[in-house]
Design a protein around this nucleic acid. Sequence first.
RNA 1: GCGCCUGUAGCUCAAUUGGAUAGAGCGUAUGACUACGGAUCAUAAGGUUAGGAGUUCGACUCUUCUCAGGCGCGCCA
Length: 585
Amino acid sequence: MLLIYIRRLVNNFIKDLSDFLFDFTDFLESNKFISPINKKQISIDYSSNNKQGDLATNFYLVVKRKIINENFNIEKELNDRIKSIEFIDHFVVSKNGFINFFLKDKFVLRSLKEIYGKNFLNYINYGAGKKINVEFVSANPTGPLHIAHIRGAVFGDVLSSLYTKTGFDVTREYYVNDAGSQIDKLSNSLLKRYLQLFNKKIELEEDEYPGEYLINIAKKIKNEDGDKWLNFQQEETIQYFKNFALKNILLSIKTDLELINIRFDKFTHESEIEKSKIIDELFSILDKKKLLYQGILEKPKGDDSDWEPREQLLFRSSKLLDNEDRALKKSNGEWTYFANDAAYHLDKCKRNFDRLVNIWGSDHIGYIPRMNSLIKAIKDDETYLNILTCQIVSLIQNKQKIKMSKRSGNFVTLSNVHSKVGKDPIRYYMISTKNETAIDFDLDAVVEKNKDNKVFYCQYAHARASSVINKAKELGIKIKNDYNFSTIQNLSDEEVKLIKKLICYPYLLYQSSYYNEPHRLINYLEEISSDFHSIWNKGKDNESLRFIDEKNAEKTISKIFWLESFRVVLKDIFSIIDISSPETM
RNA sequence: GCGCCUGUAGCUCAAUUGGAUAGAGCGUAUGACUACGGAUCAUAAGGUUAGGAGUUCGACUCUUCUCAGGCGCGCCA
C-alpha cells in the first residue's frame, strides 16, 4: 500500500489535500463523531476516469465504519471546509463512497506550465542525491551476449536512467566473472580450436565451449602468431590463451552493448577481487559474528546420485535469511564463486553507496537468500540490497520458439537480433513488460511489418506533434515566455483529459522509480500517444478541432502550448528509455 | 520432494500496488484520406482473471488448497 506521506513528496495537490483530510479526521476524532482510525488506510489518487473527477479518495469508505454520532453530517461539514482549498472546484460523492474532487481549471493549467517548463525535478527529487549502485548484465565472458542477457541489460540501463531522473546519483556496474573453472574450460576450448586449425586431431569435451566465435578468435591468434604456440610449454600457452580469450570476448560484449547504447561506469573483475585482501576482510567480519564454521552440508533432496559427504568452510546463512548454510570453500580449498561474489559485495558496501541494486536472471533466483544473508551480516540492514530478477525471453520465429543451448553452441546473439530489428525496438520491447513476467519476443512480427511496432506508434505521435509545431512556427505563431495560459475554453474535452494526464507525469516518474518498474513508462506513453492520435483524427472530420486555426490565434496558441508540453513529456520518456525522438519519419 | 516466479480475450501484454464498468495492440468484421503527416482514426465481436475456499465496504491483486508451466536445489558460474 502506497502511503500518503510518500505521495506528498510528489505533488502539491495530493499533499495539500491529504493534509486537509488528516486535519479533518483529527477534528472528527477529537469531537467523538468517529472512533479513531488508522490514517494510513486513507489514500488519494489521480482518477483513472476523468468524468469521475480529477482526484479521488476512499476517505468515506474508511470513516464510514467508525461513525459514532449518526446525527453529525460529515458531508456537509466537508463541503463547508473544502472551500478553504483553493484548487478544488467542487466534489462529488459516488454511489459506492468515493469522494471525487474536481480541480479548478487555472490550477490544471498552472501544473501544465510546470510540465512545459520541464520542472519535473521540483516535484520528484525523491533520490535527493543519494548514491545508488546498479549492477547488471554481469554475463560470464565465455561467449557473446545472447537474447537472455538483453532484457537484464535494458532493464538495468533504463532503471538506472529512471533513478537519475528522480534525483539519485547512479553508478552502472558490470561484474566480470573472469576466474574459476569455467574460464579454464574456455581457454582449453580455445586452445583446441587453435590446434584444429593446424589439422591436429583433437575434439572438444562435452562440457567445453563449442561456439563458432572461439574458432574466429583462434584464427586471430594464428594470424598474429602463426604456429608459435604449437611448441610452447603448456602452462604459458594456456595463460596466453586465457588472457586472449577474455580480452576478446569482453571487448565483443562491450561492442554489442554499445549497439543498444549501454555503457558502464565501472567494470569490476573477479580476478582482481580474488587477488585483493577483501576476502580476508570479509572472513574476519563473518568470523567475529560467529558465522563461519567447518562442516558437512546435508544431502540434497533432489538428484543425489553422486553425493558424498565433504567437509568445507561454511557460511551460517541459515541463521539469517537463508534456509540452509552455504559453502565458501570447495573441498579442495579453493574459494567458491559465492565467496568471491560475497567479497565483491563487501567491496561495494565499502564504497559508500546508499543503496545497492542487483539485476539477475531468473536462473539465479535460488541464490538471492544467501546474498541477502550476507548483506544482513555486513550491514544489518535488510533494505540496503535490492535484488531484482528478470524472467526469460523466448525468441519466436516462424511461430515457434527458437531452442537455444550452450552445449550445441546454438543461440541467437544480441548483434544478430540488432542487425534485424535495430536499437529502438529492442530497447522498447525489453522494457515494455514487467521484469518478472516471462515474455515472447516475436522476431517476425518486429522485422516484417514496422507498423505493428508500438515503438513507431509512439514515435509517430512525436513526429506528428513536431510537424504541427513546426508548421505553426512557419506561420509565425509563437508562444512567448511569459505566456499566460489561463483558460481551457478553446479546448475540447479530449484535450483537457489529455492535459490532466500530462500533469500526472512527475508522479508517474516517481512511482516507476519507487517500485523499480520502468514498464509503467511504456503504459503511460502508449496511452497518451493514443489519446493524441485520436485528437488528431478528430481534426480531419471537423476543421474547427484542428490545432492550427489561422483565423483564431489565441485558440491556436492554447493548443500549441499543450502540444509542446505533450512533446516535452514524450521526449523525456524517450530519453529515459533511450530511443530516438524523431521529428520526421 | 523442497524453494522462488508465473497463469488475465484466439495470440502478445497492461491494469494507478486493495479501488469504481478488468484495458491496449495483433488477428477477425465494417467504415474514414483533394490532410496541421493514413506508420493514423472510428465502430463491433471476443472474459466465471486456471479452479475452489477465505479475509472486507471492495480482490486479477492478500491468505490457503488444488491444477498447469518456467527457473533453481552441496564444491559449476
